[in-house]
């Protein structure tokens, strides 16, 4: 190869890089999350020797199924530029209500739709406040947080055991492939993530979600249905929280009104680590899935090390910090180039 072909190749490469960046610059944070995930797994494997086992990896999904579901809903909201602080409390409310209804003898076929509807209703309330009454998402979802948390304690002040077969089935069933296994809750979580990703990428609704996050005013002038979209994302987040309540109840075999305190923060952190910008407009549902897995892996690593669980949040906090500083640096560089 002579010098000129080398330059030519180099030029082609740089042109391709440029085209790629022009098209997919917003994917970079998600790639970073994937990279971190891989490094975490490999690092843990080297350190512990027995980390990357099928059993461990299967448990990772099982343990974090409810977080995945919450993160999918949160991604919709954050991409519009909003935020939903209510998810942890709504999950607790639907979880305890589910346990309570089941304990009083209702059939799961009635209870499950009912609690999902309850989640949707709180989401609707938040969405309506945000869209039609100009309440900041932060405050509106804060009202949702208080409401759901209080209602959870109204349902019951103590935890309620779940005996219902079909709900427990979600958790106890193990579909196996060799040493790998997956539970119905895991399937549920993955399906939610896939459906979410599909909706965001391939439907007009999904693109409107991005449009609203990019510039609400412009989206409206373009004739997009901004109002319905903004309400809908909170309803979606509420539905996801309702579903997460079911999954968590199945997972722990009980409803507990103190469940999920601070979970909204974990979810937001996971979504941001997965590459979604809190300013709205960019983000990926599958990125959030990775974000949750990173979160879960850190938790597992810490319990492997036998360290204080307090470290989980410190590390997640630091990781969040790293992410936002890097994102900030990228933005600054882009501005300087202009």
């Amino acid at each position: 190869m002579n010098a000129s072909t080398v330059t030519a190749t180099r030029e082609t490469v740089s042109r391709h890089t440029r085209t790629f960046l022009d098209r997919h610059a917003s994917l970079m944070p998600t790639f970073a999350a994937v990279l971190i995930f891989a490094v975490l797994l490999i690092g843990a494997q080297i350190h512990f020797g027995t980390f990357l086992t099928p059993l461990n990896m299967s448990a990772l999904l099982l343990d974090n199924a409810y977080l995945v579901i919450l993160a999918v809903g949160m991604t919709f909201v954050i991409v519009t530029g909003g935020i939903d602080l209510s998810v942890g409390s709504v999950m607790a409310l639907t979880g305890i209500w589910c346990a309570d209804l089941l304990a009083s003898g209702h059939s799961a076929a009635v209870v499950v739709p009912l609690i999902i509807l309850a989640g949707a209703a709180i989401g609707l309330l938040i969405g309506v406040l945000v869209q039609y009454f100009d309440v900041q998402p932060f405050i509106a979802s804060l009202a949702g947080l208080f409401l759901a948390r209080g209602l959870a304690f109204v349902v019951s002040l103590d935890s309620i055991r779940v005996e219902n077969e079909s709900v427990l089935w979600l958790q106890t069933t193990r579909w196996r492939l060799g040493e790998w296994y997956i539970t119905p809750t895991g399937v549920l979580a993955l399906s939610v993530a896939l459906i979410g990703a599909f909706v965001m990428q391939f439907t007009r609704f999904g693109r409107t979600v991005y449009a609203v996050g990019g510039n609400e005013q412009s989206a409206r002038l373009m004739g997009l249905d901004v109002a319905r979209t903004k309400v809908a994302v909170y309803v979606i987040s509420g539905v996801c929280a309702g579903l997460a309540g079911l999954v968590l109840t199945a997972y722990s075999g009980a409803g507990y009104p103190r469940n999920g305190i601070g979970t909204e923060l974990d979810v937001i952190a996971a979504v941001v680590i997965g590459g979604t910008l809190l300013t709205g407009g960019t983000g990926y549902v599958l990125g959030s899935l990775i974000g949750v897995l990173v979160f879960g892996t850190i938790k597992t690593v810490i319990s492997f090390m036998g360290a204080e669980q307090a470290w989980t949040r410190i590390i997640i906090g630091l990781m969040l910090l790293m992410f936002i500083v890097v994102q900030r640096a990228i933005v600054v560089r882009a501005e300087r180039r202009r």
Binding site: R23, S26, T203, R204, R207, T208, Y210, A211, G213, G214, N215, Q217, S218, A219, L221, M222, G223, L224, G281, T282
Partner: peptide
């Protein structure tokens, strides 16, 4: 009044995007 976070093509077509099977 366009959307800086979306592609040029989307900015041109948004609201009347070509769709197949929805």
């Amino acid at each position: 009044d366009l959307l800086p976070n979306l592609s040029v093509a989307e900015n041109i077509s948004l609201g009347v995007e070509p769709r197949r099977f929805g």
